[in-house]
Simulated assay, not measured.
Amino acid sequence: MIVRIMGEGQVRLPDARLADLNELDDELLAEMEKGDGPGFRATLQALLAKVHELGEPVPDDSLEPSDLILPTPDATLEEVRDMLSDDGLIPGT
């Protein structure tokens, strides 16, 4: 699976590792629903760090379609809210 982090590039993440991100995605969704700005910021940073930890960067000269798009590390709560589906940022997990 190819994950794009807006403003950073792409990361190749094994499909089996997607479930590892589910807990953070659920946390992020709950913080957004409560309007918890500081919690949202910390969880977003943790989610993006986990993607980097579990995946491998896709070379900049490689153009591959992204299966999942995540917000920039400095995205606001409102910007991320606009990106969400009912399942959070990571659908189906």
Score class of each variant (00 low, 15 high):
P65V: 07
T76Q: 06
A30C: 10
D25R: 13
D15N: 09
E8S: 14
S62V: 14
R41Y: 08
E78H: 03
V3E: 02
A16N: 06
S85L: 05
V58F: 00
L24H: 12
M32H: 07
D86Y: 09
E78I: 03
A75S: 15
N22L: 13
E23M: 12
P71R: 03
V3G: 02
E27R: 15
E78K: 09
D36F: 09
R4K: 07
D60P: 10
T93E: 07
L63Q: 06
A19K: 14
A19S: 10
D60T: 15
L54S: 02
G39P: 04
L13W: 00
L29Q: 12
L70H: 05
D74Q: 13
L29H: 12
Q10A: 05
T43E: 04
P59M: 12
E8L: 13
D26L: 15
P65T: 03
R81I: 07
S66R: 01
I90Y: 05
A46F: 13
D61H: 06
S62P: 02
L28E: 08
M32C: 10
R4P: 04
D74S: 13
L29F: 15
D25S: 11
R81N: 09
T72P: 11
D36M: 10
L28V: 07
A46M: 10
V11Q: 02
V11G: 03
P14D: 02
E33A: 08
V3L: 01
T72D: 11
P38F: 12
S85I: 04
G88A: 00
P38W: 15
I90G: 03
L48Y: 02
L13K: 01
K50C: 05
E64V: 05
L29D: 11
L47Q: 06
I5T: 09
A75Y: 11
E31W: 14
G39D: 01
I2P: 00
H52Q: 11
I2T: 03
E53Q: 15
I90V: 10
